[in-house]
Design a binder for these strands. Sequence first.
DNA 1: CTAGGGTTAG
Length: 737
Amino acid sequence: MLLVSASSLPSILHFLPGSDPPYKVLEQHPYLNLLAKCNNINTFKQIHSLLIKTGLHNTIFVQSKLIHFCAVSPSGDLSYALSLFARNQQQQIHNHFIWNALIRGHSLSPSPISSLYFFSRMLHYGLQPNSHTFPFLFKSCAKSKATHEGKQLHAHALKLSLHFHPHVHTSLIHMYASVGELDFARLVFDRSPLRDAVSFTALITGYVSQGYVDDARRLFDEIPTKDLVSWNAMIAGYVQSCRFEEAIECFCEMQKTNISPSKSTMVTLLSACGHTGSRELGNWIGSWVRDNGFGSNLQMTNALVDMYSKCGEIDTARQLFDGMEEKDVISWNTMISGYSYLSLYEEALALFDVMLRSNVKPNDITFLGILPACACLGALDLGKWVYAYIDKNLKSSSNASLWTSLIDMYAKCGCIEAAEWVFRSMNSSSLSAWNAMLSGLAMHGHAEKALALFSEMVDKGFQPDDITFVGILSACTQAGLVDLGQNYFRSMMQDYGICPKLQHYGCMIDLLARAGKFEEAEILMKNMEMEPDGAIWGSLLSACKAHGRVELGEYVAERLFQLEPENAGAFVLLSNIYAGAGKWDEVARIRTRLNDKGMKKVPGCTSIEIDGVVHEFLVGDKFHPECKNIYSMLDEIDKLLEENGFVPDTSEVLYDMDEEWKEGALSQHSEKLAIAFGLISTKPGSTIRIVKNLRVCGNCHSATKLISKIFNRQIIARDRNRFHHFKDGFCSCNDCW
DNA sequence: CTAGGGTTAG
């Protein structure tokens, strides 16, 4: 079959099948050197053709090289290896190298367990597995959690007395540790005389993966001569166990040895720096990266971007990100979740948009960064798109947090029904999914549903945690269910043994104070083992406002001023209390105090999403392109409100008392602007959804109730604390918020 | 001629 002229052939002419020349000769053949440098399948095929021309392809040696390349190399192709194997099986079945390469190739494939099939065929042809065979087999069992098969192979290795071979031994430990059989792993380790760093490290990572990082550390200390990999494994073990400080300490210990850190050490360490906010160490690693020539390494740069953004240096992170020549999906995800982590949600969504335009395929992690941004901004259209995308492309994702994030997003975007739908369609619910659903219902004021859901989850055997009870208690708070709330609070401690945290006390104090039970709230505050935070004083202060308790309000406000001197909202609340009691001189005094301190209250801001674009409005905002139409709609609204007997409540007028907008400040509140824009930009009868960054003021609340009736629209408004569903002149919060 | 332990985003 060889139709090549003799003159074009290199020094070795063709060989008859099975008659290999000495290895020494073959090994140095230039075509085989090419194969060693080859990194893609097309080049491989060219080399293959060259080898056919020389006739060398008939030698077992070359065939084993070819099969090895296709089966094992990351740029290879396992099915091609199999076709090469099929072609010359008669000779190849007697060669160990080829079987081992095929078994190894399958251990790297998506279905590693199929390597066992090749193993049994190998036995069938009468070949004995050797010390090279077992490590790949154990790796396959480890990957596919095939405990039973692993044990049979273990027995096989014992029979052949290969179990104390260093490579076999270590992969055996690794296998038992990976399938969760730590005791077996330990037994194998203890029974063997082998005590090298490699087998120690295999056992250590097993302990770490089962959460026994302290046991892992004890083993680590026993290693006679620790090497780079064992140090890296120990540091990574601490990181995996979220013990970041200890990871850093471990690195400092490593620095005292003569083992230099590697790229992996630094990548792991950067994660610890991000979680602990260790900017200094992070920067030091940054220079190490440059000095050691890893400046353009993808993995390293990703880790640096992560560290910088988690340490709050988002601009440095972005600069690095923008400067990357090559970005993978992890780079994008890191940068996006960096923005989300720092609550820079608009930036997160903007970058997500760029990511899609760059044709990078998002994955589950991307959405874990994007969904909280949708939730916080109320970007429902994008949220819906994400849901559809996940449903279509990531449905099989076992990532339970993805579904939990979807529930949370729908709830926070005002679609509690959609949240319930996602929750019910999850094939296996997790505790966090129940918790997300529960707090969603609470946010929407559906206390009864929330409490029913709680019974359901208990019936199904889920053990409620502290977060569950934050949801339950806030459901009671939003609905004003004082007695029930107190019962659940008691049950939490007595039946579930959960020690109340600040958040639980906050709910209870809020619950009692709203109901006017200030004395009981005070007793609770005195009995807590921690100091009340600003949120607790703040909820007391707004309860004082609701119940007209001027004196108590003054006391509470002073405490709040001490705790949070920059909190302008506290000053505004106190001034509203004075205004409600007609104490205008006190109102003026507070304003002076505010001005003297040069403080600016957080401006009220309302956003509304129309056709996937989020529009933001500030009070009296005139920057919107549709400004003219919005304001004429606003006039129309005010006219209709007046005709329907609406009397503005001016008691909270300081709320937005910027000099320029004294006049008509109330009618131009950001939520009203957003509603006006919603009315002119959406179809009649459709639901309007708005998101406000502060609490809805009393005046807007009454106005919105009436607007829902006059325009026959359901208006769903999210404020700082909860949702208001306005319909037919009523609000779901029953005016208690 | 092959081979064992660690390797980024949540």
